[in-house]
Amino acid sequence: MASVEISGLRKLYGSVVALSDINVSIPSGTFYTLLGPSGCGKTTLLRTIAGFHSQSAGDISVDGRSIGHLPAHQRDVAMVFQDYAVFPHLSVRDNIAFGLKQRRIEANEIRQRVDQVMEVVQLGKFAGRMPHELSGGQQQRVGLARAIVVRPKVLLMDEPLSNLDAKLRVDLRAELRRIQQDLGVTTIYVTHDQEEALALSDVVCVMEGGVIQQAASPLDVYLRPANRFVASFVGSNNFIDVERSGAEAALKCGSEQILLDLPNQHSGDVVCAIRPEDITVIPGKQGSATDQSEISIPVRIKEVSFIGREMEVFGTTEQGEILKSVSRSDPSVIDLPLDSEAQFRIERHNLSFFEKEALGGRIG
């Protein structure tokens, strides 16, 4: 196991800033996920740690030893790639043993370590098979085994599940987490899949524009997003403009206003964020919420989608905003007629507030 420290890291491509002032501290044994949309800098950061890219400024340390100036093969890190990167002309056993042979490890030790790793990744009965005889998930396990058999201090994984079908991705991510915990190896994992990041990680690091927007536990990132970007990227959110009149703040819903108690009496432009799963759909025109702990937004039903264990209901407010609710499948919701009236009911403690700009910070 090894800790990783990244300080003041910058990466420039000419005048383009790919990474800006990256500071990260990863304790030993942590599963640390870099999450963000395409072009946010997550893969650039991973490949810079690996030594495939050189940084323009800053440093990278593993267990207190600076590696930022070292070539990739001297950094004691291993990479698992998106496209498996297995050698088509080598058997499973020979693929896994390749890195050990390059390091001139003795044959008996190679055999023992390969046997141990094949047991960990559950490939023992496939030792003599060629890659074309394996499924995509099995090939990815070969790539993982080849990386961990050399016993790296840090394991790097670049979207390793993205080429697999949905069910296999879910199955294999559970295996990845089990293997990582069994080995205790510090792992830095890149993905754009938020569900994958939440399920696997000790820490989720959300990136955008080459900058870390938030790094925290999966629960904190989801329930307490640091800014509007994180709130919109991790899970989904409905955003409604908050209207201001003097000291009062309100949501305008139809002919009435819902007064809000903004934290810290913030004076700038603000949006209210509501998670779809926090909205209860009440068919018909039930009027305003009578309980002061709730708000009720009148809508007209625009769309109802059955997606298995959940229902998605889209409603349009009188201002033309489209709000989304997600709930367990409910026959009364499935049968909601399009363009019928309904109420979207939300408990006030589930409302969040952010500065209006795209990267606007959380208020309160």
Rank of each mutant, 00 (worst) to 15 (best):
V313D: 00
F52D: 02
D202Q: 02
E277S: 07
A72P: 02
L144Y: 07
C40M: 07
K167F: 11
I67D: 00
N237P: 01
L35F: 14
S329P: 03
T280D: 01
D291F: 14
R224T: 12
E256Q: 13
A2C: 07
V313P: 02
G64I: 11
D63K: 02
V281A: 03
S56H: 09
E119T: 08
V77H: 05
R362T: 12
Y13T: 08
P298N: 06
E310V: 12
P160T: 14
E347F: 08
Q74D: 11
I179C: 04
Y84E: 00
Q286R: 12
E310S: 14
S288A: 14
M207C: 06
Y32P: 03
A147R: 05
T191K: 06
P218D: 00
D21E: 13
F52A: 11
G14N: 02
M157I: 12
A174T: 12
Q116F: 04
R10P: 01
Q257W: 13
I282W: 06
R103D: 08
D165V: 10
A273R: 10
I334K: 12
I240F: 01
A2Y: 03
A147D: 09
Y32N: 03
K252T: 15
D291V: 15
D165C: 03
D261T: 05
S236W: 12
F87L: 03
N264F: 07
H132G: 10
G51L: 08
N95C: 05
